[in-house]
């Protein structure tokens, strides 16, 4: 039950990993405990520093899903443009893709035996 999972090229023992993580967490807590005790009570601790500008409201400061990875998606536009065009929601195209896969597989599996 507690033995390792043989992967063919090695093994994986989750309980050893969990034990290691517990040790890491304990060491982290010890280091944290050695720190400045008054830091917890410092006024304005954790407030955002906006280079002197007034802080925006909490609601408006939340980064929405549409903005996350914007740069990545912009940089990958040449990849995404045809991909999005392909996912057009037209059910005719869904069936077309199925027919195309059948055609490719027929060529790969059936044709070599014919000729």
């Amino acid at each position: 039950m507690f033995g390792p999972l043989e992967t063919g090229a090695g093994y994986w023992t989750p309980l050893v990993w969990v034990g290691s993580m517990v040790v890491v967490v304990l060491v982290t807590l010890v280091i944290r405990g050695l720190g400045e005790r008054t830091a917890k009570n410092t006024h304005m601790k954790g407030d955002p520093f906006m280079s002197g500008n007034p802080e925006v409201s909490k609601e408006n400061s939340h980064v929405r899903a549409g903005n996350i990875y914007w740069g990545f998606l912009k940089a990958m536009e040449p990849y995404y443009k045809p991909l999005m065009k392909w996912h057009n929601g037209n059910v005719n195209d869904y069936v077309l893709m199925f027919i195309m896969v059948i055609a490719v597989l027929l060529l790969a599996i059936v044709l070599p035996g014919v000729f």
């Binding site: 996912h87 929601g89 059910v91 195209d93 869904y94 893709m97 199925f98 195309m100 896969v101 059948i102 597989l105 027929l106 599996i109 059936v110 035996g113 014919v114």
Partner: peptide
């Protein structure tokens, strides 16, 4: 040859039903 055609049809149909690309587009819908 008929067995091969049957294989192609079965593999393609079940692959579509399990949502394999490029026959996956029904899945998110």
């Amino acid at each position: 040859a008929l067995d091969k055609i049957a294989l192609v049809l079965l593999v393609s149909a079940f692959a579509m039903k399990c949502g394999a690309v490029p026959m996956h587009m029904w899945t998110p819908d």
